[in-house]
């Protein structure tokens, strides 16, 4: 009986540690599914000195295998769809998706374009939607924090990061 309790407590502790690590180390993969570049450069700008997302642990990864969060920009075009699915499949669990910009949310200004097959959430599950055309880098960081809050509702660890 006590053995089971200890095991449970141990498992809970492990899960807690894993959750802490996950919320503090969101590695990001960026995929452009047909965007106009606007969101892409703003996403990149979020990593540069002015906004420096690395202080929240955000790191841009090159390989889908090493990323936790897939950030997609742009409406999904016919050609990019298969790639999108492939990249999503390649990512290991647990994985999260952020739809960045009005186009990824709803096709925005590109609604009704013949080669646009739809917003992102028609193809893969989306965890956080960040509207904006493009969203400011701060709004992107806000979106990432919303995701982290969803994962770890109690308190998102945001101390540090200023000095």
């Amino acid at each position: 009986m006590t053995a089971m309790k200890i095991e449970q407590a141990w498992n809970n502790a492990l899960a807690g540690v894993a959750l802490w690590a996950r919320t503090n180390s969101p590695w990001v993969l960026h995929f452009n599914t047909g965007s106009c570049n606007g969101c892409d450069i703003e996403l990149l700008a979020a990593l540069t000195p002015r906004y420096d997302a690395e202080r929240l642990g955000v790191k841009l990864q090159a390989s889908p295998r090493q990323a936790d969060i897939l950030i997609c920009t742009g409406p999904v075009t016919r050609q990019a769809r298969d790639r999108l699915l492939r990249i999503y499949e390649q990512m290991p669990e647990p994985r999260f998706v952020i739809a960045l910009g009005s186009c990824a949310l709803s096709c925005g200004v590109f609604h009704d374009c013949y080669n646009v097959v739809g917003p992102l959430d028609r193809f893969i599950p989306v965890d956080v939607y960040v509207p904006g055309c493009p969203p400011r880098p701060e709004a992107i960081i806000y979106g990432v924090i919303e995701l982290l809050k969803k994962l770890h509702p109690v308190d998102v660890i945001l101390e540090g990061g200023s000095a």
């Binding site: 540690v17 894993a18 802490w20 690590a21 996950r22 503090n24 180390s25 590695w27 420096d52 690395e54 202080r55 642990g57 790191k59 936790d68 101390e159 540090g160 990061g161 200023s162 000095a163």
Partner: peptide, 14 residues
């Protein structure tokens, strides 16, 4: 600013 002090630990555990 750069990463927080526990960043590599969090990365590894994650």
């Amino acid at each position: 600013v750069g990463p927080r002090w526990f960043q590599p630990l969090a990365d590894t555990v994650k």
